[in-house]
Structure formats: C-alpha cells, structure tokens
Nucleic acid binder design. Structure first.
Length: 803
RNA sequence: GGGAGAUUAGCUCAGUUGGUAGAGUACCUGCCUUACAAGCAGAGGGUCAUAGGUUCGAGCCCUAUAUCUCCCACCA
C-alpha cells in the first residue's frame, strides 16, 4: 500500500542512494545489447551552475533513460571541463589577483583546489536531481590521463600536417594577455566617435579627409587606401600623405575592399586595427607596426603617448589633434566591436608565434560534415553551416596562460627548432621534463614551451576522453561514432565544431550521428542567465530542494527542444499537480490489485478500448523520444494519463468495487487492464520523473517483474496493431458520459445523482450496449434506451435523493 | 548585409504527413463523487500578426509585409 501522501524529500533521497549503491545505471562492457553512447557535455568549472544547465542536462538525462528502457546498453559518462582560461578567470576573480602576480605553480595549485570545491557542488546537484550518468567515475580535462590524450592528439595532428606554428596575426586579449580563437569572440555595442582627420598631401597645402574610430592607431599607419574606381581621389595614388600629428609619410594604394560611401571614401590602414587590415597586410605585403604591448599599453611608436592604455591614448590623441587643428569633425556613433567572451575586453590583433590548427583549407569537408549529421531540431544545422562558411581565422590553440594542458614541445637553445616529446613519455610537462634526445643540430639544451593549450583543444576530444574510461585505449575511435552529442545552441560553433574538426582529422569519421540542441533558460525578463550574474530565481540547489527533483525535471522536460524559455516558478505548479495525481491514481488502482496475479481474461468492451488506446499512445511516444521530441512525448502520455483517471477509472471503479454485482470475470478484466496500463504508464513516465515512478514500481510491480529498478525494466509493449474502430467507438461512449455530466452540471446536480433513464441515439448502439453496465454506473442511470440514428443523448427524469 | 526562429484564448504555450482551433492557468457556475479539494464536472473566451496565392479544404504549403528574439558578418 502506498502512503497517503507522497513525501518527496524522503523518497527521492532514498532512491538516489539506492541507484547509486546498486549501480543501476552502469554501462555493461560485456553486453550484447545495442550500445547508445552519449557524449555528455562536461560542465565548464568556472562558477555556479544555473537553471539553464540543469534543464539542458535534464533533457540528456531523459534521453539516456529512454534508451535504457528500450533495452539498450547506455553509455552515459560524466566529466568536468576544469582546465583553461574559464577556470583561471574564475579563480582570478575569487582571489582578486591576476595570475601573473603569482608564481606559476602556486596559481595552478589554487586552480586545482578551487575547481575541486566546485566539482563537489556539481556532483551533489547531479545526484540530488537524479541524474543517471555514471556518478562513480568521472573524467577531468586537467587530469594527467586527459593531458596524455590531448598531447597525443597534438602530436598526431602535427604529424598529419594539420598543426603548424607561425608568427602570424592572431586575436589577442589585452586583459587576459593571451591569444584567443574566433569562437571566443562576442559582439558588443559601444558608444564611440567617428573622427574626420586631415591627412596633408606631401609638399602641398592640401589635405585629404580620412575618417577613423581609432585615432590612437595613427602611430601605426602604414598606408592609405582608396577604391580603384574612385576617380575623384585617383590623383592621390601618385602622392604621399602626412600622418596627422605624428608627421611621418605614407603611400596611397588602391584596393577594391574600400567602400567609397563609407566615411570619406579614403581609409587609413594600420597593422592591425581589424580584420580587413589583416587581409591588406597580406595582400599588399605591408610593414607590420605594433602599436600596443600585450597588456594593452601603447608602444614606443606612440612617442609621448607610450605606456598609456589604449582608450586613454585615444582621448589624448584626439585632444592633441584638436589643438593642432587636424580634426575636422567628430560624429557620435554606436558600433559593434568584437570582445573576448571571458572578460568583455575588445580584442586586438597581435603578431606572435602561435600554434594553429588549419581549418580554413578544410572548410568544404567541415561544411559537408554538418550536412551529414542529424540535427535536432533540424534548423540548428543552419547555424553550424553559417559558422563554417564565415570562418576567417585558423584555430589558434596556444594560450599564453598557465592552467591548462602543456604543449609537449621544447625548443633547441641553439637553432630554435621545436623538439617534440615521444608518445611513450606522455604526458609531459616541458617545464619540468626534458627531451630524451639531442636536437638535429647537435645541441642538447632546450627551452620549454611555456604556452598551454586552448581548453577546447582538449574538450574537443571528449568522445575519446570519456570512452577511455571503458576502453583504456586513449586516442582511439572504437567508440566513435557516439549516438548523441547534446548541448545548448551556444556551443554549436565551439564545442561541436571543434569536436568535428578533431574527429575528422584524426580518424576521418564523424564523432557522432545525432545532435540534440537545447534552448536557453532565460530569466523572467528574457535576459540570458549566467554563472556570474545572479538573475535567476534562486539556485538550482534551492529549487530542487524546495520543489523536488521530479517536479523540476517535469518543468525542464516541458521545454520545446531548441527553444529559449523564460524561467518562472509558476510553471512548477503543473508538475506538482501531476506528481500528486500520479501518486493518488496509483494508490487507488493498486489498492485493487493487492493479491492479483496477471492472467489472460476475456476483456470487457471499455477495457479493450483502453488497451487499444494504450497501444496507439505507445507507438507515438516511442517515435517522439527517438527523435528527441521530449516535450511532445511527455505531453502525449500525460494527456493519456489524465484521461485514464477522469474517464476510464470513473467508468470501471464500480466494477472493481463490486464483483458480486458486475461479475467476477468482469472485475478481473478491469484488474487486468489497470495492471497493465498503470504499469505501462509508469514506465513511460519513468524517464521524466524517475523518483516517484520508482517508488510506486518498487511498492508493487518490482516483485512481480523481478527487476532491480523500474529504470532497467523495459517499456511495456502491448503490440502495435491498433484497432482504430474500437478507439472511435469507445470515444463515443465517453461522449455519452460527457453529455450526462453536462446535464447534471447545468442543473446544478451532484454527479452521483441518479436518473430514471437515458436515451441514446447512435449508429453504434451495438457497441455501446456492450458497455452498458459501466455506462449505467458512471451515469447513474437506471435504464438505457437505444435508438438508431445520428448521435444524441437525452436524459430522463431525475431521481431526487430520498432521505 | 546573410541566416534561423517567433507572432494561436487575458496570461504561458502545444498543435511533425493540409481535414470541424487545443492544454494549463486565470475568470465564472456547480459538485465533499467509497483515490485525489494540490480534486471533479461544466460554461464563456480565438479574423491562428497582416495581405495575397495554391487547394474541394490552409494555423500548417507558397509569395510579400510588419513587429520581436537569436546567430553570423560588417564594424575605415
């Protein structure tokens, strides 16, 4: 017997411990069942988790449970992305110090320590939400084993010619003082001024107007461009121009990228103010002039402005130009600048020696990969393709930082050639370890590579890192392709893209077959939730604790796939009601099944109808979950469930209570139906609300089915041939019930009020007659008359209660 | 500038092969019905953004338009 009230706090904890202790969700390496491998997103350990993460993980969770219920051998690993800049930034903020202020080793130790604390918090939340990933073992992107895999990947791609080192322009963050990748850029609107400056023509008292938003870069101007079609300014090509204030001269060149309409139609070029400068530098082989130091100060080029931060210098230069009457006018504008997603600082372009993975020469291959993968929802494919089409930088994987996977590389002190570590020695830390061989030039002394790898250079290997926990094969493709890569849409251009790159380059294979892309949870005002801003409505820990894991999961599972949803606790009410109803309905139904053993019986009409309806539901339920339509699957089974409660149970409860009146076989038929349909529903609900379904299952069905848990008990498939005519005719019986209820409601009568008779006009009287006993009961009718014709229900005389 | 999505009841949103507009919630009217008042029954409430088109038939397909959100590009 189930308790009168369901105590979620007690039960949820109980089952979480039970699942954990009994390894209910363990992946079976020796199983012959079809494998379903999930490339679980390792959360970035850089702050506290929010409802967005929780909802996205719930979706993954539900899919994992679904496949387990289908009898598949589900590989659902668990890990943390705890290396790299995100973590460093988190730690820097926390200790209020820049990494460069500490000794390298000390800083790394603090990072390790802080991530461990956060990881404990993540772990507790995963467990208390009932996640069925393997909680007993997890990978970490900073562990030595991961470093080994990551370094091996580096060596392999270098050997295959995908990785190169070059002194080339790369994106630079002056705040984090490191190179970054195109995928780490974020747009930001900034108030700025468009400054129209006088560039005098050498030897003449004439000037050309040049407009710029970056006057502080005047010291780095290398030339001025006009459009080759620009007849008005064509004469300038023969002239030299004098850079305002700084006074040096630069040539005028022509390039079709210059827009004649923008600004004054004449543009100054520095190396490097933006992307176009980068292209011009290459195309016209321009001199490289560095205006900024790596921490965002002006270099000696800026003369008296040397040492000033970029923005301060801009102000100072503008003042100077005003004084010298070189500034014609200023326009206030709002323009978009690219900023670093980790700190919000506008990025600059710097020329430094960096390691790159070539993606630009494989665009087509990468594009085609996007076409071959199954995206759910489908429109997310466009985002990937759009990203690949617009790639303009190779993937810079070196970071001038500290807490990350080191490059397995040294440089010869004499000739400067890189020396690579031997695979068998991995992982290596070039700062501590030394190469075992001499350089080709005969020199035996080396400088270590001090850069570390971009965190994505490692997390793009999650299929290998996670499967290594089972295969112990390291960088290996025996688990590839995984069945599913799930993540939110912000990661398409980052994690998804990079994982595809690595898998194609290493193995020539796609890393997975399917992607499931979740939307964002936004705060109630529509803004994005973030780990640093606290604009959510409480921490996930509190929400789960106050509302139960099942209700929280129910909420998350109702989000349409790929769509952003505003968070609102109000939406939790549905889940609370649902859980309560499921408990009460199960309690009621099971109270009739205490000594029941299921056996075949000739079914009553409405019982047969419900079973047909179940079969119909089952088919579409499986279809929805197989295609990751979680919310549709849930809403369908839920609709069936409420219908079961309000209509079917009402129809048969008298039969269940009174076998002596309705007949033993008739009662048995209802029991048979209740037994199977409730079991089937619990199993279907189990991926969504795992705790309450387990509690109900364990209190009754587990013994009969002899299963350790509902979650590995398999769905209840009653066959897929559905008799559509039975479905329709059964609905007509419900229409009769509905008509009687309406009559009573309109006449303000209690539903149990009895009536003398009802007269049913229908073309299905033969069918309805077979359900007469149930119908009489629920309608409170003493007699039923039948007529052939178009559907109509007439209610006879009301029998008033006799006291 | 390129792309994706949204626009359906007062509110939040479903609606996946084109076939009489749905749910929850709110409001209203009833009902203590041998599970559930965190419940049950019933009622009202919609030119499915706008304008055209295809079709016997369009919320759904096509073409424009409007408003909003997001991604990308531009960012002299």
């Amino acid at each position: 017997m189930l308790d009168k009230k369901y105590n979620f706090a007690e039960k949820e904890k109980k089952w979480q411990d039970y699942w954990f202790e009994n390894d209910v969700y363990k992946f079976d390496e020796n199983s012959n069942a079809p494998k379903f491998a999930i490339d679980t997103p390792p959360p970035t350990v850089n702050g506290h988790i929010h409802m967005g993460h929780l909802s996205s993980y719930t979706h993954i969770e539900t899919i994992a449970r679904h496949h387990r219920m289908k009898g598949e051998n589900v590989y659902f690993p668990f890990g943390f992305d705890d290396n790299g800049l995100p973590t460093e930034r988190y730690v820097e903020k926390k200790i209020k110090k820049h990494a460069s202020e500490l000794e390298r080793q000390k800083f790394i130790e603090i990072c390790l320590d802080e991530t461990r604390k956060l990881e404990d918090e993540f772990f507790d939340l995963y467990k208390s939400t009932g996640f069925s990933c393997n909680l007993k073992e997890h990978y970490s992107s900073i562990s030595l084993n991961t470093q080994k895999i990551s370094q091996k990947s580096f060596l392999d791609l270098y050997k295959k010619g995908y990785i190169y080192q070059d002194k080339a322009p790369s994106l630079w963050c002056t705040e984090c003082q490191t190179a970054c990748a195109q995928s780490e850029l974020e747009d930001m609107d900034v108030e700025s001024t468009f400054n129209y400056l006088k560039f005098f023509i050498k030897g003449k008292n004439e000037y050309v107007t040049v407009a710029t938003t970056r006057p502080e870069m005047l010291c780095g101007v290398v030339c001025v461009f006009i459009n080759p079609e620009d007849k008005k300014n064509a004469h300038l090509l023969k002239e030299k121009l004098i850079v305002p204030h700084f006074g040096f001269e630069v040539p005028v060149l022509a390039d079709e990228l210059v827009s004649m309409e923008k600004g004054s139609g004449v543009v100054m070029c520095c190396t490097f103010g933006d992307n176009v400068d980068k292209e011009w530098q290459r195309k016209h082989n321009l001199e490289i002039k560095e205006c900024f130091t790596s921490n965002g100060r002006m270099t000696a080029l800026a003369k008296e402005f040397e040492g000033l931060p970029i923005l301060a210098c801009r102000k100072a230069v503008i003042e100077k130009l005003k004084e010298e009457d070189l500034l014609i006018k200023q326009e206030n504008i709002t323009h978009t600048v690219s900023t670093h997603d980790r700190c919000g600082t506008p990025v600059e372009i710097e020329v430094k020696k960096q390691w790159f993975i070539d993606v630009l020469s494989h665009k087509q291959e990468l594009y085609d990969a996007g076409l071959k993968l199954n995206w759910h929802p489908q429109n997310m494919r466009a985002r990937y393709l759009n990203w690949v089409e617009n790639l303009s930088w190779n993937w810079c994987i070196s970071r001038q930082r500290y807490y990350g996977v080191p490059f397995p590389v040294w440089y010869c002190k004499k000739c400067g050639k890189p020396i690579f570590a031997d695979e068998k020695d991995l992982p290596v830390d070039p700062l501590k370890d030394k190469p075992h061989k001499k350089c080709e030039c005969g020199c035996g002394e080396f400088e270590p590579e001090t850069d570390v790898m971009d965190t994505w250079a490692t997390s793009s290997l999650t299929p290998q890192i996670s499967s290594d926990m089972v295969t112990h094969k390291g960088l290996d493709d025996s688990f590839v392709p995984f069945n599913l890569r799930p993540n939110a849409h912000d990661n398409i251009r980052v994690w998804d893209f990079y994982t595809i790159v690595k898998s194609l380059y290493h193995f020539g294979k796609l890393p997975w077959t399917d992607l499931m892309i979740s939307g964002y949870v936004t705060s109630s005002d529509g803004s994005k939730l973030s780990k640093s801003k606290s604009n959510g409505s409480g921490s996930p820990q509190e929400i789960v604790k106050n509302n139960s894991a099942d209700v929280t999961r129910y909420w998350a599972n109702n989000m349409a796939l790929g769509k952003d949803t505003a968070f609102s606790l109000f939406e939790f009410d549905n889940g609370k009601k649902f859980v309560n109803k499921l408990w009460n309905a199960s309690k009621f139904v099971l109270s009739f099944l205490e000594d029941y053993t299921p056996k075949e019986v000739k079914l009553e009409t409405m019982d047969a109808w419900l079973l047909e309806k179940y079969k119909n539901l089952y088919k579409s339920f499986i279809k929805h979950l197989d295609t990751y339509e979680i919310s549709l699957a849930l809403s369908e089974v839920e609709r069936f469930f409420w219908d079961f409660c309000d209509n079917y149970v009402e129809l048969v409860k008298r039969r269940l209570y009174n076998p002596n009146i309705f007949g033993a076989r008739e009662c048995e038929s209802a029991k048979y139906t209740c037994y199977h349909v409730l079991l089937g529903m619990l199993k279907m609900f189990s991926p969504f609300v795992p705790h309450i379904t387990e509690e109900i299952y364990q209190s009754y069905y587990a013994k009969i089915e002899n299963k350790i848990s509902i979650h590995v008990s398999g769905y209840l498939d009653l066959g897929d041939k559905v008799d559509k005519s039975v479905l329709d005719k059964g609905e007509e019986v419900l229409d009769i019930v509905s008509a009687v209820r309406q009559f009573k409601s309109e006449n303000k009568l209690s539903l149990k009020t009895e009536v003398e008779d009802i007269t049913i006009t229908s073309q299905n009287c033969d069918f309805i007659k077979k359900a007469e006993a149930d119908l009489k009961g629920v309608a409170g009718a003493r007699k039923i008359n039948y007529k052939d014709g178009d559907f109509k229900v007439e209610i006879g005389k009301v029998i008033l209660e006799q006291n």
